[in-house]
């Protein structure tokens, strides 16, 4: 029997209510339902999460590594975009 690789899926886990889903890793599965089951069995064995997303890796649109300079470097010398020029009033804890 010929061995055909199952498609790759990316797994995202929400570790607790209120936090956003974070990328946890990837896995192979024959279809979407199996991907969800496999994600549960592979990535949440030690109570890592309360919610799971899976998405086929080839459906993700990613930025091109060779274009990093055009994509991200222009932001590096624009320090005025960071809110670092303000004095934080006393008593404000989370800003």
């Amino acid at each position: 029997m010929s061995k055909q690789e199952w498609p790759l899926y990316e797994v995202f886990i929400r570790s607790k209510a209120g936090l956003s889903h974070r990328h946890a890793g990837s896995l192979h599965a024959a279809d979407d339902q199996m991907a969800l089951s496999n994600a549960r069995d592979t990535y949440t064995r030690r109570s890592e999460g309360v919610s799971l997303w899976v998405v086929r890796s080839d459906r993700i649109v990613a930025s091109d590594p060779t274009e990093t300079s055009a994509f991200f470097e222009p932001a590096e010398d624009k320090i005025y975009r960071h809110p670092t020029f303000y004095e934080i009033p006393e008593g404000v804890e989370n800003l």
């Binding site: 192979h28 089951s37 496999n38 069995d41």
Partner: peptide
């Protein structure tokens, strides 16, 4: 037959 199934079965 597959790594993911392996983990599921062992669990």
């Amino acid at each position: 037959p597959e790594l993911e199934e392996e983990l599921a079965n062992a669990n």
